[in-house]
Design a protein around this nucleic acid. Structure first.
Lengths: 214, 214
DNA sequence: ATGAAACCTGAATCAGTATTCATGTTACGG
DNA sequence: CCGTAACATGAATACTGATTCAGGTTTCAT
């Protein structure tokens, strides 16, 4: 298991990082093909052969860059997560307050899912292949999110409250609305959806719309 | 494929319904074992052998009652869905208005997930085995839910709005909070969670807490 | 009681597929 | 220009696991 050669241990291990421009390109092609293949066929139905065919390489080449099918999924989740976060940060950068950031963020997320449907499937399936990847994804996403809500509270934009619970509720909202309206029935009419959620976040559902709780 | 015997066609088809008390019991044992096995190992890691072992029958017996592994998952999702719905209806029956029903429903759901963790996994994995089961589950769940919100609107308990979007948002909230607090970190302190969501639904997040929207 | 239907058994089948490896091919530092 | 490390190939391997089936056992209506 532990080869005598190379670097300390622990790190990247297994099949090495490419050391040539060609290798770099091939590895990237395979990863992209894996994203598409997992995204359309699903992790279990997708075979290594499907991936390598889509990448235009022989099946053995896969193992020059990836230790296993599962390892590939792991890397994919991390990379796709980074891309999504970067996109959302960019799209919400111009918000004037937290509530507006929520609006921009939801709209951006829905659009992103429309354009990258593989994200949903790869992430959700990862949950049952290796739960730790999935947990890590949402927990790290959640931590940043919580800090943003805390900041907004400090600035008086939202009422104090249990931000962890709020964040998981908000992530749940995005997730389900994404599935329903970005993947299942692609409505371009995201405005209506965003407006409805925005109203919920600003005023709640109650007919009073304000202070009447205990 | 089509045997010459028995009933018209179309219906239950394949492996028959048990015709004896013994058969009834065996079938039920297998279904229960499948629930447990899928719940702990997951659909793909769970083998027919694991299920039949847990049920205490020979592997061949499985096919006396179920056409395939996939068919079993289908049936399981439907049955588990029925059970959950029945439980929630019962637990929310005493609510005095919609907002209170949401509170009772969320608490009941969290507790139910704690007690029946297999529900989450079986349902979510079904999504990638046969999406139609999963869609049907949420769409039928959603339809009833929408009607309840519509009724609440008529009674003046909540403001008018896009109830379909609201319902999917609410289902997303329950789902994510269930995963986080009922499956991952079992906190018995559901009160805090329910209170936070209740506050969100009653007042929103905004510091004003009321009418300031466009 | 009795025999046909229902039920149960578990070894054998059969197909799919992740991974390996011996063998070419290509790139590039010297 | 070479020679070697990198890279690429794809048939062969090795294994898993769903499904079948030929034959025993139990149930129950008559």
């Amino acid at each position: 298991m532990t080869d005598a050669v190379s670097i300390p241990a622990v790190a990247g291990s297994g099949p090495g990082v490419p050391k040539t421009a060609r290798g770099e390109r091939t590895r990237a092609r395979i990863l992209k093909a894996a994203e598409e293949t997992f995204g359309t066929l699903g992790y279990h139905r997708a075979g290594i052969a499907d991936i390598t065919r889509a990448a235009g390489v022989a099946s053995g080449t896969f193992y020059t860059y990836f230790a296993s099918k599962e390892e590939t999924l792991r890397e994919l989740v991390q990379e796709m997560g980074r891309r999504l976060r970067a996109h959302l940060e960019q799209e919400t950068a111009g918000a004037r307050d937290r509530l507006e950031a929520e609006e921009l963020g939801l709209r951006a997320f829905l659009q992103y899912l429309c354009d990258n449907p593989a994200l949903y499937r790869v992430l959700q399936e990862a949950q049952f292949v290796d739960e730790s990847i999935y947990r890590h994804y949402y927990e790290s996403f959640g931590e940043r999110y919580i800090r943003m809500l805390a900041g907004a509270t400090d600035r008086g934009e939202i009422r104090p409250g249990n931000d962890e619970v709020r964040v998981w509720a908000l992530m749940g909202i995005s997730n389900f609305l994404g599935l329903r309206y970005a993947l299942w029935e692609k409505e371009a009419r995201f405005d209506e959806i965003v407006a409805t959620v925005s109203d919920l976040l600003r005023n709640g559902l109650a007919s009073g719309g304000g202070r009447e709780n205990r």
